[in-house]
Amino acid sequence: MITTLASNLGRFALLVLLQVLILDRLDVANGWMVPYLYVLFLLMLPFELPNWAGLLIGAATGLVLDAFGSTPGMHMSACTVMMFARIHLLRLMAPRDGYEFGMRPTVPRMGLAWFATNAGVLILLHHLWLFFVEMHRFDAFFSTLLRAILSAAFTLGLALLTQFLTSRASERARA
């Protein structure tokens, strides 16, 4: 319990700092690919977490990002939508016997296909919401859509890379 809390807090601090200090300044392909890797923190929250707690943590995380980016409500709304979708998606993607105690939403524990599907859907939803809210108009619809999709692909790539770089060898052997 304490370990889970500590590792999640550490992951939160690390990913938020990585986001605001490095990724937000990363200018890839002239602004067509802007990764928002901090959502990995939300994607890796434990399955046992009550739904209401997930929603509150999502909203709070978004608010922290908004405070760094001077964009009140933008990340908060995107994270809230994503965490609400996550509730239903986790139910939809549950194993036949439900999630076992101690299972974590990572590549070594759940498999690459499960993680990539789950993360892919949620990241795409988050990015689509975020990019359209950021433009707050629909006149550049297709370029915004393309920017959101390209950025989501970039974020998913970084998320998978992070999974492979941070999972321990013992975990990988077991999986």
Binding site: L55, P72, V133
Partner: peptide, 21 residues
Amino acid sequence: RDTLLFLALLLTALVMLYNGN
């Protein structure tokens, strides 16, 4: 209750967004 909490949080965020713009 989850849906209600979601709607409340989303509404808060959208109000902030609107005020910010």
